[in-house]
Design a protein around this nucleic acid. Structure first.
Length: 361
DNA sequence: CACACGTGGGA
DNA sequence: TTCCCAAGTGT
């Protein structure tokens, strides 16, 4: 394997920049967050785009900006409303960190997103990628923004065979982009690299014949573009079995519970549920015992209505679903009583939306 | 460093 | 069906 420094010396970086940037300026997609360079909007879009497809983000971005158009609006919003606007997007800590960071910007920086690497980069939820993306796109600073696209594109350009799943490899690509980034047009350069990865230099079958920088590409020259980048596989998710109940009382109220402030699906709402033993059979009894212990509720639980399977990245939930009626009132605040209409104001994970859909059918 | 942390879409 | 994702960050 050739030394990286040698590979860099063989590249015509100025020409690469020019080819990439002129392609980007001509071919860039018209996306909602590209209508202006308001640092707040750029920031929101970058957080939403973390591990999430553009097509998925577009409607969420439009709705979020309509509800929370400025730093001040998001800083002063109820977390409940903010989570509701994020419902279904996943990785919910992103938005709790974003609001926390925006509140800091509001209070400490007078609502102005700080343009310095140190200050912006130290905010909650702002890692090396988001820092580079916002500072380059909104403030035109030559800071690398290395995401999966950039690692894929540059691994091919330079024929780098390091495993991009390793944190150390990301550091390597940050150094590489430092050497390649345009000082004149860092915003177009960074976005061009990501745009190229999204529409041309794709993972499975890259469209090399349409690529504006294929003449700079070592992998294309060597015919190994489909072998790169190298990415080690993740382990299979483990399975958890649960039983959940849509619990109502005589007045038609529905009982819901707010999840803990940290961990999986933090601060989202859910229907009463408990982890069960894989053997099944006594699920109803386990559920009844859970209701009794947590809230002192005696309930009549009906037959098994169905099973919801929900797959997370690292985990599978297998939820047996029941419907139940309370026989008395709860004696503490473990659950909240809401009407069917009020239920729509609370943010639920998709797994529990499936449970609700089962009940409404 | 390895793993937790969501979801929906495409091959 | 199964697998791999898609503009990462926190711990």
């Amino acid at each position: 394997m050739m030394d990286l420094q040698k590979k860099l010396e063989q590249k015509n970086i100025k020409q690469f920049q020019e080819d990439l940037i002129s392609w980007y300026e001509q071919e860039k997609r018209d996306l909602p967050w590209r209508s202006d360079s308001d640092p707040y909007k750029v920031w929101v879009s970058e957080v939403m785009l973390q591990q999430t497809r553009v097509d998925t983000v577009i409607p969420y971005f439009n709705n979020f900006i309509e509800k929370f158009p400025t730093v001040e609006a998001l800083a002063e919003a109820d977390e409940e409303k903010v989570l509701k606007a994020w419902e279904g997007l996943g990785y919910y800590s992103r938005v709790r960190n974003l609001q926390s960071a925006v509140r800091e910007v509001h209070e400490r920086y007078g609502g102005v997103v700080p343009p310095s690497k140190e200050e912006f980069g130290s905010l909650k939820g702002v890692g090396p990628y988001t820092r580079g993306a916002v500072l380059s796109i909104a403030y035109n600073q030559p800071v690398p923004a290395v995401d999966g696209n950039v690692m894929r594109v540059m691994s091919r350009i330079l024929s780098v065979w390091d495993d991009i799943a390793k944190p150390k490899t990301k550091t390597l690509f940050e150094k590489i982009v430092e050497a390649f980034i345009s000082e004149e047009k860092p915003s177009e350069f960074n976005q061009g690299l990501m745009e190229l990865g999204a529409v041309i230099c794709t993972p499975k079958s890259p469209s090399c014949l349409l690529c504006p920088v294929r003449e700079h590409c070592s992998a294309f020259a060597e015919g190994c573009e489909k072998e790169l980048p190298v990415k080690s596989k993740k382990k299979k998710p483990s399975v958890k079995t649960l039983a959940a109940v849509v619990l109502t009382d005589e007045e038609g109220y529905i009982y819901i519970h707010k999840r803990p402030a940290s961990g999986l699906l933090a601060n989202l709402w859910e229907f009463p549920n408990t982890e069960t033993q894989k053997g099944l059979k006594y699920e109803r009894e386990q559920l009844a015992a859970f209701l009794k212990e947590e809230a002192g509720i005696e309930a009549e639980i009906g037959p098994l209505e169905g099973v919801v399977e929900h797959v997370f990245t690292h985990l599978v939930w297998n939820i047996s679903v029941f419907f139940g009626k309370t026989l008395d009132q709860p004696d503490d605040s473990y659950f909240k009583k809401v009407t069917k209409e009020e239920l729509a104001e609370y943010a639920f994970p998709v797994s529990h939306q499936k449970i609700w859909n089962m009940y409404m059918k």
